[in-house]
Computed example of a mutant assay.
Amino acid sequence: MSRTVYVNGEFVPEADAKVSVFDRGFLFADGVYEVTSVLGGKILDFAGHAARLERSLAELDMPMPMGADELLDIHRKLVADNGLDDGLIYLQITRGAADRDFAYPDAQTPQTVVLFTQEKPGLADAPMAKQGMKIISIPDERWGRRDIKTVQLLYPSMGKMMAKAAGAHDAWMVEDGHVTEGTSNNAYIVKDGTIITRHLGNEILHGITRAAVLRFAREAQMRVEERSFTLEEAAAADEAFITSASTFVMPVVELDGAPIGDGTPGPVAARLREIYLDESRKAAV
């Protein structure tokens, strides 16, 4: 059955959704995006995603095309119109359509705003949470402003294909010997009960799920260190995991063909996943 999608102020069948060939998102990857999870028809962490969206746009000298309340109304209508119980809502905003030129078009050029849903039945009960993920390491060859959630995702896509070719589920990117993040997630290790994840900066995305999970971890009296860690530290860790809006907290059991810890999902990741899902469902809108 055709989905209803949102394009520039209109809710239309997906077959009728059109964006100009001159859109700068298509020509220059000149745009940003967000992904929100939906569980039981309710939207998780909306306020955090809206705040990061505004920051990403500001970093690219683009305004928010609408207020957070209107944006939430659009999300809710897409959930209702598509009968979405468990799944994701993708939002993309570009600088709009203009004749091709590296220089930005006039500030009055209308932005392009697109939202669509993806159905993911049983999103919170993914079998991978019990099995754990296999990860490979690859060089981090992205641009320097990874803190801006832009639509330029070619290298992360290549990284996922490298992982697939190696018989793994995903890849962690490495710069100067230290893990930055996964192709679409933040990376963590656990050693002697301490959760270690890279500190915020231009090198990684400021994950909304990351922020929530670290807050919940501290509230649960877990030790947290926000610092860079090496591949060698990851290989010697007791356990590892990732976080993202689409995977929540997902254990990692293998790195570059060698088991992490005993090669099974660890207790810290399992507990954090349980806490995150419980607390996020309570606060969902």
Rank of each mutant, 00 (worst) to 15 (best):
V5W: 04
Y6D: 04
V7C: 05
V12Y: 00
D16W: 02
A17G: 14
A17R: 09
S20A: 11
V21K: 01
F22W: 13
F26E: 07
L27K: 09
G31P: 06
E34S: 14
E34V: 13
V38F: 12
V38G: 10
V38N: 13
L39G: 06
F46R: 11
F46G: 11
G48W: 06
G48L: 07
A50T: 07
A50S: 15
L53N: 03
L53I: 01
E54F: 04
E59Y: 08
L60R: 10
L60Q: 10
M62E: 06
D69P: 01
E70I: 01
L71F: 11
L71C: 15
D73I: 09
D73M: 13
H75P: 08
K77L: 14
A80P: 02
D86N: 12
G87P: 02
L88I: 04
Y90K: 15
L91G: 04
I93V: 14
T94F: 03
R95L: 07
D99N: 04
R100C: 05
A107I: 07
A107T: 10
A107E: 05
Q108N: 14
Q111M: 13
Q111P: 00
F116D: 12
Q118R: 15
M128L: 15
K134V: 08
K134H: 12
D140R: 01
E141F: 06
E141A: 13
R142E: 12
R142W: 09
R145K: 14
R146A: 15
V151N: 08
V151I: 15
Q152F: 10
L154E: 01
Y155F: 14
G159A: 10
G159Y: 04
K160D: 02
M161S: 14
A165E: 13
D170H: 07
A171R: 00
W172T: 03
E181D: 12
K191W: 07
T194Q: 08
T197H: 12
T197F: 08
H199F: 02
L200D: 12
G201Q: 06
G201A: 11
L205E: 05
T209D: 00
A211S: 10
V213D: 11
F216R: 04
R218A: 14
R218Y: 08
R218T: 15
E219F: 06
A220N: 09
M222Q: 12
M222K: 12
V224C: 08
E225Y: 07
L231N: 05
E232L: 09
E232N: 13
E233I: 02
A235M: 07
A236R: 12
A236M: 12
A237M: 02
D238E: 01
D238I: 00
F241V: 05
A245N: 08
S246Q: 00
F248V: 09
V249N: 11
L255F: 02
G261M: 02
D262S: 00
P265K: 01
G266A: 08
P267M: 04
V268H: 05
A269S: 12
A269D: 05
A270E: 15
R273D: 03
R273V: 01
E274G: 00
I275D: 04
E279K: 15
R281A: 15
A283F: 05
V285E: 14
